[in-house]
Nucleic acid binder design. Structure first.
Length: 916
RNA sequence: GGGCGCAUGGCUCAGUUGGUUAGAGCGCCACAUUCACAUUGUGGAGGUCAUAGGUUCAAGUCCUAUUGCGCCCACCA
């Protein structure tokens, strides 16, 4: 054992152990028959990511689970990796190019992808390094990337299988289009945000009676350029006559019909709806139903295209203004009303999305959702906290088809090839709209489109016509189309063997059989739909089983004002800065201790001081134990087991408290209540082991039994706190038990329930109460610690008297008493103060210790002072001009102050009385 | 429009299936430094548990309504 420095210095310690753990391969997981697996796959951070507090929380939780289960004897595998994050990464690299004055389009696809790969090689492992710094005990040999060669094979395989099954189809449909990223987005990628906009009331004249018109209401007047009808509700009496009449679309002078359709709500606006089939999902359905023309009026960048007449090339919002001006001029603008609305926004660049008609690839989700719904309903998969179950089921029950094609370059290119000679794009209704049109039971048959070939590699010739001019689909797949395979594709599925970073071959089937399904998934609520739900569906579809048993959803990390932490708000607390300043263990412990299950986390920097202080406390308590530990003594006694009934009360007490705490810690860790577990350990160690136990045994610290117990309790505590604070515990362990290897490889402290003794805990609690009461009295009288008092403690029952007698040494020591007498009844004495706690009467004699006369004089002086203060305050408050003129809160403060002073006065008088 | 969450001392939050005296951290006040630790110790002040009803022997905890804040979902132009 070597002596410890006076304060814990995390920096040097952490780097040293990180290296040692990795050298020892301590995090490596292998198939171990006879052992139970415990598997977690990391939610792969974006390659563009840098560690933020959300990552820190998310990964600390996972690491605690992994480290806890490792000690419990499981074979733990934590699978690490990163996500290629299609749009996000492409945007980052484009921005970088932009700064150099270059554009993606100028480079061309291949050159641009080279740039992205170069960027990935240079910066892509930043987040991995940072996770290592956090102490994350992932099996780093296995680190995966969603664009790895093998992983890409899995993605292709899945696309082909789903296509063959009829679950992937190509179709023309209205999708969410981001005009800035210029790609389609899935519904989940275009969250609605509230906007303050206007409702524009436009007049559409009749062809035959140009002075008469119908009024339509719209929030996006620029779409009127693409209107091909006006709809009214067939039951709406006001408009019965006009159904079938022809209108003249203003500005465009196009003839459009008035049609009748149930989808129109007569109560909204004027009850007349302009129909723009190419720019609104509802209108699209209506357009299909009524065989209307589909006129696309937008370029992909949301400028008006050639179908917009004189507005061609204007930006959509500029066109909106101009169109309104023009209509006003022609007397065709009825009115403009302010209107609260919500619109989809791109989740990557926050641009307002445009509903846009285009050819895309979709996954039919309803059949995939069926087993995923059942698994959660019957409890094979559980959400923690439970309430997310409902959110998940609600989404799954109303699931829409998934648009998986993206018009960007960075990603898995769609494994589809076209024959230039014979391919004609499909025009297929997606189930999303068949539901709306009332058609049911759409068949899940493989889609047959001549000249369209779905294959992992480019075919030599078109199987339909034999032509050889074949080209690949330009689009790439949604990033989540690769992420949803994460729980099994990371193992190398569907291949037989898989090489890790060290070139070692892993048997994929064997590993999946052992480690899959995974045990727990730890993630944030915002990706339940994006990722969690889809992994469940993929798990069933491709592995025939759930991908994980438990889903733990933690809260969002916010700043102290409740705002989400984000760079743009400038309210970010950088975890690396905290690590640098306070240490990794401090960061981890603080984060965990303040994060209640599933609640959002509110952070400010001061909160990390608690973790740092705790680390330092652990350090110093260990230092104290080691300083006082007699080596030979401990080595001899280490093999002893606790012989409970023969031990002293304090030793029985601290052991009972240790196991009581451990029992609760176990329970809380098993139910994902990490904060409870952390705080229990904190309270036990600091406020019971340090504040009471070590203080009590100090005078008799060399007793063999005390030596043994303080050592054992410390040692067990270190093991229990290890999952939370791996670095400091390792450092202390290496000095406390240098021959016993890494602390993370020790077993979790075995819960010895027979050593939990509530009776002992109660008895001890009484003694602590007595001690506190005596200290309390001393503090009230301002008696210096150097002044030793005489105390008399009286209890009516014999067991209590015996207990206090037994503990009188401890009480005397901790209260700095000269003598302590235990009696049945308290006699009235002169110059004493008294107190009662739990039926125990305590009397402190001030005679000979405190000069009673002097003390009396002091008290008298204080009473005098207090009385004059009270009088002064009363006068102030009696002053009507003060009460009337001063601000209410000032008056209130004065009142409170007066009440306090009066209370003090009463106390002082009581003490004076006691002295007489 | 639907759903969910939150409201507890000056601040930020715990409080598991209803059960003695509602806890913690920070902050505040007083005292203590040749003591493992001032990144400390001892003691203290400070709470109508958002509001109004209800169930119960018993409610911070369960039910109903109300108010305020936050989040998610949604094709009402």
């Amino acid at each position: 054992m070597t002596e410890l420095a006076k304060a814990y210095t995390p920096k040097e310690t952490e780097d040293r152990w990180s290296q040692a753990w990795s050298d020892a391969g301590a995090f490596n997981a292998t198939v171990t028959p006879g052992k139970k697996p415990f598997t977690i796959v990391i939610p792969p951070p974006n390659v563009t990511g840098i560690l933020h507090m959300g990552h820190a929380l998310n990964n600390t939780i996972q690491d605690i689970l992994i480290r806890f289960h490792r000690m419990k004897g499981f074979e733990p595998l934590w699978m690490p990796g990163t996500d290629h994050a299609g749009i996000a990464t492409q945007n980052v690299v484009e921005r970088k190019l932009g700064k150099e004055g270059r554009k993606r389009q100028d480079l061309g696809r291949d050159k641009f992808l080279e740039e992205v790969w170069r960027w990935k090689e240079e910066y892509g492992s930043t987040i991995i390094r940072q996770l290592k710094k956090l102490g994350a005990s992932c099996d780093w040999r296995r680190v995966r990337f969603t664009m790895d060669e093998d992983y890409s094979q899995a993605v292709k395989e899945v696309f082909i299988r789903l296509f063959e099954k009829g679950l992937i189809y190509q179709g023309n449909y209205i999708i969410n289009w981001c005009p800035r990223c210029q790609t389609a987005l899935a519904d989940e990628e275009a969250p609605h945000r509230d906007l303050q906009g206007n409702l524009y009331f436009l007049r559409y004249p009749f062809k035959d009676a140009p002075d008469e018109y119908v009024i339509v209401a719209t929030t996006r007047p620029e779409t009127m350029l693409g209107d091909t009808a006006v709809a009214v509700n067939p039951k709406d009496k006001r408009y019965k006559k006009i159904v079938g009449k022809t209108l003249l679309l203003p500005l465009m002078n196009r003839e459009i019909p008035v049609i009748a359709d149930d989808m129109v709500d007569p109560a909204f606006g004027t009850g007349c709806v302009k129909i723009t089939p190419a720019h609104d999902p509802n209108d699209y359905v209506t357009g299909k139903k009524h065989a209307l023309a589909f006129i696309n009026v937008l370029h992909p960048d949301a400028r008006i295209n050639e179908n917009g007449g004189e507005y061609k090339d204007m930006d959509r919002f500029e066109a909106r203004e101009v169109i309104i001006e023009d209509l006003k001029e022609k007397g065709l603008l009825e009115k403009i009303e302010p209107h609260a609305l919500s619109a989809g926004h791109c989740y990557r660049c926050h641009t307002i999305i445009e509903p846009y008609l285009s050819k895309q690839w979709f996954v039919r989700m309803k059949p995939l959702a069926v087993p995923g719904i059942a698994a959660v309903k019957d409890g094979r998969i559980s959400f923690y906290p439970k309430r997310w179950t409902k959110v998940y089921l609600n989404w799954m029950n109303n699931i829409q088809d998934w648009c998986i094609s993206r018009q960007i370059w960075w990603g898995h290119r769609i494994p589809v090839y076209y024959c230039r000679a014979c391919y004609k794009p499909a025009s297929v209704d997606s189930p999303a709209q068949t539901a709306a049109t009332g058609k049911k039971n759409i068949k899940h048959e493989k889609q047959h489109i001549p000249g369209l070939i779905v294959a992992a590699v480019k075919p030599a010739a078109c199987p339909h016509c034999g032509a050889t001019d074949i080209y690949q689909d330009e689009d790439v797949l949604d990033t989540w189309f690769s992420s949803w395979l994460w729980p099994f594709a990371t193992f190398g599925w569907p291949k037989q063997t898989h090489k890790d970073a060290q070139g070692i071959d892993h048997d994929v089937r064997e590993e999946l059989a052992f480690f899959y399904p995974t045990s727990a998934l730890v993630t944030a609520p915002e990706i339940i739909f994006f990722w969690v739900a889809r992994m469940i569906m993929a798990g069933f579809e491709f592995m025939g089983d759930i991908p994980f048993k438990d889903v733990y959803i933690h809260g969002t990390v916010r700043d102290i004002e409740g705002k989400k932490m984000s760079k743009s708000l400038g309210n970010v607390i950088d975890p690396l800065e905290i690590i640098n300043e306070y240490g990794t263990d401090a960061l981890r412990f603080s984060l965990i201790s303040i994060t209640a299950q599933g609640q959002d986390v509110f952070l400010n920097k001061e909160r990390f001081e608690q973790g740092r202080n705790f680390a330092n406390k652990i350090w110093n308590a260990s230092r104290f134990v080691m300083m006082n530990l007699d080596n030979s003594q401990v080595n001899r006694d280490l093999c002893l087991t606790f012989k409970n009934e023969q031990m002293s009360l304090v030793n029985r007490w601290i052991i009972s408290r240790l196991y009581s705490t451990l029992k609760e810690v176990n329970k809380n860790l098993e139910t994902y209540k990490f904060n409870e577990a952390a705080n229990l350990l904190y309270r036990f160690f600091w406020h019971e082991f340090c504040d009471w136990y070590l203080e009590i045994i100090k005078p008799e610290i060399k007793q063999p039994e005390n030596q043994l117990i303080m050592f054992k309790v410390l040692e067990k505590f270190l093991r229990a706190i290890q999952p939370f604070m791996p670095f400091i515990t390792q450092e202390i362990w290496s000095r406390l038990k240098p021959s016993e290897g890494l602390i993370m490889q020790q077993s979790w402290p075995h819960l010895q329930e027979q050593l939990i003794d509530k009776k002992t805990e109660q008895r001890m609690a009484l003694i602590l109460e007595v001690i506190t009461a005596i200290r309390n009295m001393r503090a009230d009288l301002e008696i210096l610690p150097t002044q030793h008092l005489h105390a008399v403690v009286a209890a009516a029952t014999k067991p209590k008297r015996e207990l206090i007698e037994h503990a009188s040494g401890h009480i005397g020591y901790l209260c700095r008493l000269g003598t302590l007498a235990v009696q049945e009844k308290l006699e009235h004495r002169k110059s004493t103060v008294t107190s009662v706690v739990s039926d125990v009467h305590i009397s402190l004699s001030l005679e000979g210790v405190v000069d009673v006369e002097k003390e009396k004089a002091k008290i008298d002086a204080k009473i005098k002072k207090a009385e004059s203060d009270v009088k002064a305050k009363e006068n102030t408050l009696a002053n009507t001009s003060f009460v009337e003129r001063a601000p209410a809160e000032v008056v209130e403060k004065e009142r409170q102050r007066l009440a306090e002073l009066k209370e003090t006065l009463i106390k002082l008088k009581a003490v004076k009385h006691a002295l007489e």
